[in-house]
Design a protein around this nucleic acid. Structure first.
Ligand SMILES: Nc1nc2c(ncn2[C@H]2C[C@H](O)[C@@H](COP(=O)(O)OP(=O)(O)OP(=O)(O)O)O2)c(=O)[nH]1
Ligand SMILES: [Mg+2]
Ligand SMILES: [Mg+2]
Length: 411
DNA sequence: GCCGTTTTCGGCCCGACTGTTTTCAGTCG
């Protein structure tokens, strides 16, 4: 049993309870536990089997969920979860994947029309049965069909590097709009998560700028899902969703803090602020009582206002970073500047683009301590691989360079 | 269900957009 499978059970419990109209905070507890477990670096099964005490220290896991984790590891399932699945069909959960459909609508659709799956929902919408329900009209019916189509075409989460290739040109496009002052990546993209659910971009602009009109006119936009004064959502041709948030320059830091997330980090920061009689939103940090604006121009200002140093986006996951920040124990994150050398380098002797001298010069410029020349051998004749004679000559060249650049025994 | 710089009980982040509705609930970020 892997963490991710245990997490899934808690996510399903949360969804099922929510559809049943249970206490929203109890729902939040299960959902949060699912999230914490999914992000946990340690393997829960071995923690439980080795009777390690770590579980009690994990924030968000209390008595009830602790017991359920032990039950799941030992029996492979959870009674509470099974009971809920007797009350509601398991396929009902896939309805929540349709954007615009939440727990309330799932409950209504199931109760009134017996809809249990996305294909049931599609049939009902096509047969115009949805608009007869309370609070649902013609538009809702149309939107459901569109959302089902988008769900079918969805390519899921994108790898960071792939998402970046779509985000960079959009950011450039936004930077060139009249009145735009700052543009920044936000969300999981800025936190450098391995996979990205959507592209989140923050824009600061002068009042009266028509940023949203220009955003939805971006040539790569396939469909506009929502368009407001400060927030719009589109789907790009590549299949990724893009969210753009536009705010005043004065709120840029607070907005960047909000839009970078993560959601769990934001909630933790806001709870902390509340205890300090402050309110944090994307518009700034405010005095709870007077509603007076206190900070928000930069992220540093926002964190300082709640008594914290700036926290690097990569660790804003509510996984202990706030405590580390409080104790001045924030980790040093690896940077390009930390690279000490490169163990895979080609030269023009084979299929490289630069000469040996140029590669060495460039390595020294970047502060590398070492590089390894790894040209092709004669087995790769297509790349003009080195035979014995040429490789010996290259070694001589390397020895000469090493002598030339050796200072006090280090290279 | 979880948790504590005021708390072991009583709160639990805060705001934007949409549709269907005469004032707001649902969903989403
Ligand atoms: N305060 C607060 N902020 C939220 C909430 N939901 C989202 N945000 C903020 C933090 C998120 O990082 C940011 C972007 O939302 P996304 O849904 O795109 O999430 P994120 O980019 O973190 O992950 P993703 O890869 O898109 O799944 O908006 C929320 O419920 N409350
Ligand atoms: Mg995102
Ligand atoms: Mg988003």
């Amino acid at each position: 049993m892997e963490n991710i499978e245990i997490a899934k059970i808690f996510h399903e419990i949360a969804d099922l309870l929510e559809i049943k109209n249970e206490n929203p905070f109890r729902v939040r507890s299960y959902r949060n536990a699912g999230h914490v477990i999914a992000e946990l670096p340690e393997n829960l099964k071995s923690i439980v089997e080795n009777d390690e005490p770590i579980l009690d220290e994990i924030s968000g896991i209390g008595k009830s969920i602790h017991e359920k984790i032990v039950e799941i590891v030992k029996t492979g399932k959870c009674k509470f979860h099974d009971e809920l699945l007797k009350e509601l069909p398991p396929t009902i959960l896939e309805l929540l994947q349709v954007s615009g459909i939440g727990p309330k609508k799932v409950q209504l659709l199931y109760k009134e029309l017996g809809i249990q799956s996305v294909s049931d929902l599609e049939k009902a919408a096509k047969a115009h049965k949805i608009h007869t329900l309370a609070g649902m009209g013609e538009k809702t019916e149309e939107n459901i069909l569109k959302a089902i189509e988008n769900l079918k075409q969805s390519k899921g989460r994108f790898k960071l590097g792939i998402a970046m290739t779509y985000a960079v040109p959009l950011i450039e496009y936004l930077k060139n709009i009249d009145g735009v002052i700052h543009v920044s990546e936000a969300g999981s993209l800025r936190r450098r998560k391995e996979t990205i659910g959507d592209i989140d971009i923050l824009v600061a602009c002068k009042k009266g700028s028509r940023v949203m009109d220009r955003f939805i006119a971006y040539p790569e936009v396939r469909e506009v899902l929502a368009k407001g004064d400060t927030k719009s959502t589109v789907i790009l041709r590549c299949g990724l969703q893009a969210d753009v948030r536009v705010l005043d320059k004065k709120s840029y830091g607070a907005a960047l803090q909000y839009f970078t997330g993560s959601k769990a980090h934001n909630i933790a920061i806001r709870e902390r602020a509340k205890r300090m009689r402050l309110k944090v939103s994307e518009y700034g940090v405010f005095d709870e009582k007077t509603d007076k604006w206190i900070a928000g121009e930069t992220e540093e200002d926002v964190y300082r206002a709640v008594g914290l140093p700036w926290i690097p986006p990569e660790i804003r996951e509510n996984a202990g970073e706030i405590e580390s920040a409080l104790n001045d124990k924030l980790p040093h994150l690896i940077d390009v500047k930390d690279l000490k050398g490169d163990l895979h380098v080609h030269t023009t002797e084979t299929d490289g683009a630069s000469t040996l001298d140029e590669m060495v010069e460039s390595a020294i410029k970047q502060g590398y301590e070492y590089i390894a020349i790894t040209d092709h051998s004669k087995a790769v004749s297509i790349a003009h691989g080195l035979d014995e004679k040429r490789v010996l000559r290259q070694i001589e060249e390397i020895d000469k360079l090493n002598k030339r650049f050796t200072v006090h025994g280090s290279r």
